[in-house]
């Protein structure tokens, strides 16, 4: 075991602490509205579907929970010509 690894070893607990803090702050805040991402997806899709036809299989939702902010990314593939319709 090298000296580098020896010190790297000691650094993992702070990483664990930080990961848990971020995770638990999100989980505690979400109590009671567990399916927020699902609800958001449904409502956003319903709004878009009013205007253009979309394939539900071509919708991709990604989430990244961060300490300062989180990002919700919804990729919707739109059929050819959708945006040019008059």
């Amino acid at each position: 075991m090298s000296l580098f690894n020896f010190f790297a070893r000691n650094r993992s607990a702070p990483v664990a602490r930080e990961r848990l803090q971020v995770l638990l702050s999100h989980e505690r805040a979400l109590t009671g509205r567990a399916d927020l991402a699902a609800v958001l997806q449904e409502e956003i899709l319903a709004v878009i579907a009013k205007h253009i036809s979309i394939d539900r299989d071509k919708v991709n939702v990604k989430l990244d929970r961060g300490k300062q902010f989180s990002t919700l990314e919804i990729d919707i593939e739109m059929p050819e010509g959708t945006l040019h319709r008059n």
């Binding site: 990961r19 995770l23 991709n60 939702v61 929970r65």
Partner: peptide, 26 residues
């Protein structure tokens, strides 16, 4: 998810897929 370091990226889960609220790929 925590042991594999993906805890920040979970959107949908097994139950969502079983109940048809999300596609497997999602």
């Amino acid at each position: 998810d925590l042991v594999m370091g993906a805890e920040r990226r979970v959107v949908f889960d097994l139950v969502n897929v079983v109940q048809g609220d999300a596609k497997l790929a999602q």
